[in-house]
Nucleic acid binder design. Structure first.
Lengths: 198, 198
DNA sequence: CGCCCTCTATGACAGCCGTCATAGTAGCGG
DNA sequence: CCGCTACTATGACGGCTGTCATAGAGGGCG
């Protein structure tokens, strides 16, 4: 696997993101992460002297970069990009996973935001940065498709909001219905460039 | 307080919902709930023989009923109901809370969905039921406003998805921007297709 | 009174948590 | 060979978790 090619440190961050998005932050133990990453437990302290908080933060940051790269790939694979087609691709990533692998996991950034366990000031900043890192390429893509710059960021926020909400509902219902619904209902809106209220 | 008028059992469910939506399920201890509810710890086992799982499920169900009732109240207070105005009211509930009380808490149903801690089959059903209980009055309100029945459920799902996603982003950013954005961008979309007045 | 039923009090239990202390290994430059 | 650095191994620590066992109030009622 390409994964095991990476160093233990990177594997731990990756495994942390994977377990967090499945079980939540509090329910994910350091020992679980180490085992899932097939990494030596003795190295935990060495690589992450900041403890669990640091590992969680890096996992969130990793997820933000991953989502951003994913957007770029969607656009690269798209012959004639359009807002609705981009949104479709973003949604389809989740419907595909849920259909093939079940509804066990959600978005790690959402998990880290919701399950902040009270403390963790730095985790709050990490989640905000992750959402920003995700929003940025989406908004930029929209502007390149002809959406006015003033609305591009807003539409990107709407897309990500609807997607994240639908992910949660899909997990609860164990059905991709909500994901398909937001794609179907929001797609035309994104293409039309509906004039916002006064 | 009206709250302390209620029996200890109901207070525990209420406190559970309140703590879960702030810290998540796993990070919320039974002892925290009992203390927050000013309820006797000895009664926990008596009222909730199903343990934490039962208490969490009841908190989620309570939240679903609460959200449904809230929709009814929004409509009752609305002179001339419209889809966008309903959505505005739903969003404003959260912007108001965040502005006045800070970004500590989110939606308990989302927390219970994301933070399912692996097990808890019954909690999955409870969260699905809660979303359904919330969707139902929204969809019904939309049909009464002139939205075709076939699209009412879809639009309700879109509204709730966008709202929930924006709640999460707002908490991460510690800013109501995302909430205001989805209200502004989605409002006109929801009204479109509705024949204005008789 | 005595009995029952609802509710409460208290403490112990095993188990997991994140953190940390200590020791040890491998490799490399000198 | 040394010393040094990077990394790993292992186990213990206090603290918190949900669960449970046992005992005891309090009140209605015959």
């Amino acid at each position: 696997m390409a994964v095991s090619r990476r160093g233990p440190r990177e594997r731990m961050v990756f495994s942390a993101a994977q377990l967090i998005r499945r079980d939540g932050v509090a329910a994910t133990g350091l020992r679980d992460i180490v085992e899932h990453a097939r990494a030596p437990r003795g190295s935990l302290r060495h690589y992450f002297p900041g403890g669990k908080e640091q590992l969680v933060n890096e996992a969130v940051e990793w997820a933000g970069r991953y989502a951003a790269k994913r957007v770029a790939r969607f656009l690269a694979e798209m012959p004639e990009p359009s807002p609705s087609r981009l949104f479709d691709a973003m949604v389809r990533q989740w419907t595909d996973e849920y259909r093939s692998a079940g509804f066990a996991a959600g978005c790690p950034v959402v998990a880290a935001t919701v399950d902040r366990a009270g403390s963790a000031e730095s985790t709050g900043q990490a989640t905000a940065a992750a959402f920003a890192a995700w929003n940025r390429p989406v908004a930029r893509a929209l502007t390149e498709m002809g959406v006015p710059a003033s609305r591009a960021v807003s539409l990107a926020t709407l897309m990500i909001s609807a997607l994240e909400g639908a992910i949660v509902i899909a997990r609860a219902e164990r059905d991709v219905r909500a994901l398909e619904t937001v794609a179907r209902e929001l797609g035309p809106v994104l293409d039309a460039g509906v004039t916002p209220r006064d």
